[in-house]
Each structure stands twice: as C-alpha cells, then as structure tokens.
Design a protein around this nucleic acid. Sequence first.
DNA 1: GGGTCGCTTGGTACCGGTTCCAGTTATAAT
DNA 2: ATTATAACTGGAACCGGTACCAAGCGACCC
Lengths: 336, 336
Amino acid sequence: MAELAGVSRTTASRVINGKPGVNPQTRKHVLDAVGHLGYGPHAVARSLATKRTQIIGIFIPTPVSTLFSDPFFSVLLQGIVHAAAAHDHQVLLTLLPETEDSEACVRSAQNGYTDGAIAVASALMSETLLPWLQAADFPLVCVGRWANGETSFVDVDNIGGARQATEHFLRLGHRRIGTITGPLQLPVAADRLRGVEEALRAYGLHLPHELILEADFTELGGMLAMQRLLRAKPEAVFAQSDAMAIGALKAIRQAGLRVPDDLALVGFDDLPLAEHVDPPLTTVRQPIPLLGHMAVEVLLSQIAHPQRKVRRQVVLPTDLVVRESCGAFRAAKGRG
Amino acid sequence: MAELAGVSRTTASRVINGKPGVNPQTRKHVLDAVGHLGYGPHAVARSLATKRTQIIGIFIPTPVSTLFSDPFFSVLLQGIVHAAAAHDHQVLLTLLPETEDSEACVRSAQNGYTDGAIAVASALMSETLLPWLQAADFPLVCVGRWANGETSFVDVDNIGGARQATEHFLRLGHRRIGTITGPLQLPVAADRLRGVEEALRAYGLHLPHELILEADFTELGGMLAMQRLLRAKPEAVFAQSDAMAIGALKAIRQAGLRVPDDLALVGFDDLPLAEHVDPPLTTVRQPIPLLGHMAVEVLLSQIAHPQRKVRRQVVLPTDLVVRESCGAFRAAKGRG
DNA sequence: GGGTCGCTTGGTACCGGTTCCAGTTATAAT
DNA sequence: ATTATAACTGGAACCGGTACCAAGCGACCC
C-alpha cells in the first residue's frame, strides 16, 4: 500500500481524490510515493465503498445479439463509448440470458457492476424485461421510443423523417407511393408509416392497403416484400431501412426494372453502405452518434439525481440525403 | 441481507455458491428466503473478496476508435461477447486515454475492473502500450500478430490467404499481378505482401517494385493507390482489404476500365459490403467470429493459469470466396 | 496565560461478500 | 460409556478503499 510510504491511508485517500485540507508538502510527499511504486487505486474496492462504479451497462437480449453486425448499432455504440469516456465512465456489454424468468434475468443484469444502463428498444425488451427494470427503479435509458411513458428514451424523429422522404417523392411528381415497413408492433415502424400517411394526407392523398408491405428491417425481408409490392405497380417506394431498400433494389433488378428510371427508391438510416450501392441510395439520415451522446447524458443525469422522477425524453431531427436512387438529379437534368 | 432470513452469512454464502457441506433442509430454507426477498449477490463486493471480476476488457486506444465503424471490429466484438458470455464473463470497453504517459495510461486501464484484456493490434498499441502491459504481467491477448514473441495472440493466416488469392490469379492466367498493401510496418500488411511474393516465387515469378503500392487499409487510400498503380498496367490486383478494393474499383471505373474484363480484382476480409458492390467482390474470408472466440479462450486460460508462462499463439485459416470481380466465372464460361 | 478556532491528520467503522478456523452436535467405533 | 470422526454451522478477519469524527497543534485573541 502506498501509505506505507509516509502517512495514514485516510490522508493518502484525500490526496488521490484531490480533496482539500491537505498540507501541500504532505500532498507532494504522497504523490512522490505513488509515482515511485507505481500505485493505482483499486477500482473495485473504491466502488464497494462509494457505491458508484462509473460503469454504464448496455443491455442486449441474446436473441437480438445480431445487433452487432448492424451498422446502426456499431455507430451508436461508438457514440455511447465516446460520450461515456468524456464523463469518465466505461461501458459494459451485458448479454441478457435467454430465459423465461425475466425477473432473474433482470437481477443478474443489475448485479452491481453498473450504475445504470442503456437498452436498445426491441419487442422482446419491451414486453418482458422493461417492466421489471422499471419496478427495480434502476436508471435506464432506451434508444428508440418506448410506448410506456414511464421510461426515459432518446429517439430520432421517425415520423418527420418518413414525412421528409414522402414529401420528396411528392415534389418529384410521384403519386403512387408504396412503402416497406418494419414489424409494425415496433413503435419505430409504426411511426415511420405514420409519417408517410401524414405527408400523403397533406396532399389530399391516402395510402391504399396494397401499397403497404410489412417486413422485418432485413435485406432479405426487403427483397421478398418488394417482389410482392411490385404487383401493385408503385411509382416510388420508401423502405423503412437501408437494408430493406437494398433488398428491394435486388428484387427490382430481378424484375427487369431500373432505379430510378422505372421506380424511385428511398431508404432510411444512411448506412455507410448506402452510398456504395448502385445506384447510390437516397435515404433519411439519422444522427446516430448524437443519439448515443444523448443517451449517455440522460442516463448520467438520471444516475446523479435518482430522487428526481422526471424521465427525460429526447427526439432528434433527421435529414434527407439526396443521391441517385430517388431520381431527383435526373429529374432536375431533364428539366434544366 | 438475506441471512437475516435464517442463518449466518457464511452459510448463506455457501448456499449461493453451491458449495457442499450444507444440510439440504438449511439450503432450501436459504433459497426460499432468497427467492422471497429478491436477493441478488453484489458483484462488486464479491470481486473485492475473490479478486476476480469475471470481466474481460477490450482496450481501444482513442485515436483508433474509428474501429467501431469497421465491420471487422463489429463482428469480432460480437464473437468476443458471445464467447465471454458462454464462460460467464462480461465485456468492458475501455478507451485508452490519449496521452504520452503510457505508463499512467496502462495503470488506468488495469484498474482492477478487468481480469484480463484483449487488444486489437495497431502501430500505436504495439509501440507504446504493449511493453508496459507486458511488464505489468497483465493477462493480455492480441488480435493480430504481434512481432514480440512474449505476447499471446490470435490471428488469421495472412500469408496463406494472400497466397490463395495470388494463386487464384495465376491459375486464371494472369502474370502481371499488382498489390495494394496496408501500412507495411504492421505485421498484417507485411504478411499479406509476403504471401503474394511466395505464390509468385512458386511460379518462378517475382513482384516488381512498381506493382506494390502501400496504402492505409481505407477506401480512399485504396482509390489513390489504384490511380498510381494503373500506370504500371497490371492485369490483376490484390488489395489487402475489401475497403481498399472498393476504392480501387472506383479508381478503375474512373479510368474507363471494367472489372473483371479489363482488370481482375480481389480483396481481403469478406465484409458484408463485399457481395453488394458491383461487381460482387472476390475476396479472402477471415473467420472473424472464431477469432473472437479463440481470443477469449486463450485469455481465460491465461487468467486461470497465471503461473504458466506459456503464451499461446493461434493462427486460423482463411478461405477464398470467389465472386465476380476476379473474372473466374467469365473465364469458365468462355472456356465451357 | 488560557480559551477558541482553523488547519491537518489519524483512528475506526463500514461497504458486502469470501475464507479460514473453531465449535457444536450427531453418529460411529472401541 | 467414552472417545474418535464426520457433518454442519457460526465467528472473525480480510479484500482496499471511503466517510465520519476526534484529536493534535499552532495562531490568534482577549
């Protein structure tokens, strides 16, 4: 122990934590000793005493651990890790075990290593785990809107983003607009659908049933949905994710049609992939790193003020990134 | 505390850890109490006593934290997290602060929260941090070969993979083969270059200087390198990463040439992106999730047997994934 | 010169587990 | 009946820090 080199551990503790009320000479003496024998405080012991670990958890239900290969998640994670580091916190990846006993699951997650946690919204999460976590009064922030008003969340403006995409189509002259959605029981999918409907309604249009295809956010799902959607002969298609848009692209090409000449296409996310496909994908960009930052901010403020029951709910704006697949450049050229 | 519900905490501890020597009736009694008041052991306190946290760290120097958006890293991380979970461990993401005082940096990383760590090889890591970590006798496994023989590592067979790609070109009849490398001071880049040279040598050929272009593994770097490489008029090009191959693709197209008709191209990694570009990229696949698994296995065995100084070094095989960009299908069609 | 105050410092309990050892009781052996 | 032995349980120390409180000490004031 460092305090062998001079003083009592109380004083050593004061020096190391930079607390006031220590003689400058004593302080220097302690710091010398610290430097001399390469001492570093033992974080675990400190946590036990202070009841703070400076660690925030990320809860991932095992069944959805394919999340990792989702670029959305990667970028989100990067944002979270950076924001956490800026606040002197570390990030613990916690895989929630697959079990029907969600109470035990929550207990194991809330094992004391984390001061609070961030969870990515998913059907699984919301149905089984969230209620327990809330009941345990554990600081938690969801990424993605969560229907229950009790929980803090950060989200992007899904309704607005979908509306932007749809309005873009409408301005380009398209009227028969189809959409490929995610699982509609997820708020994110329902919101994006609603955005499409709102934009159409503002133009006095409505979205007929046969132009809505429900899929699962994946590329394969997008391809299958597009194959069915083609029968309804849309002029333009808004896919709720870039992955589905890319699947749709394949289906369209297989059907012998061209994008954007025969069919305009817009995605959602702005994955790095989006600008590399052929044609480059017009898409709705989400400020994902910012989303991660906000999640950390909200979580830390909740940890710092556990008594304050205010749950903060943050919604960030989206941008439409216009590339080739929507046909806007071609239309402009034709006009100009 | 749970032991208020019956017995001493010693006995409670025995029950919870499933140790022998407890009366079945007492055991049941304790378990009832545990279930009744929703008790879960406090991981931090346990760690303090046992000196084991069941957490493995992943060390990421801040300057290279763009790693997160690298699909290689995402998949690796997924493999690590899964393997760790299978051994009842969690994963802590530790961003190493940017500072020239690498000793302090290492001390902060080795703060007691982790039983050991996995680090992704990088120039930065190897030059400054690794020596300290080794000196501290801290269980550490590198992903990517590390020149110093003292450290455990897991890696893929970079030499073999590059050889596979080159032999593929040779079998297709190409003789003037160019290559775009990563930073050659990294073992991974040097190895892949060596694989190319070995394959050529087996055919009695050698690699002239003007056909080697050093880049930085990124798409932009690949594009710039390809622009210069085109002057040497290669028939086929092996890029040491898919990202660079994609950059090369752009440069080739800008130059008015077609792949694979005018120039055959092969990458390395098999990113998800690889099959979506046009033309789909022939590439050398790395077993990345397996790499993560092995890293965890090696690390845990090292943690379990700290006295045994044997550093394990694992090298996994690679596969050539043949798609369109190498021209093999076209060649076969032409022949058949 | 004695009392108060402020600055520094050390003593001690505590966080919530684990571990070692001693003690208690029941059972078996002599 | 007495003692050895085994099975079970509890007491106390310990892991390495932090927090609270008391005490030592010189300066200052009256």
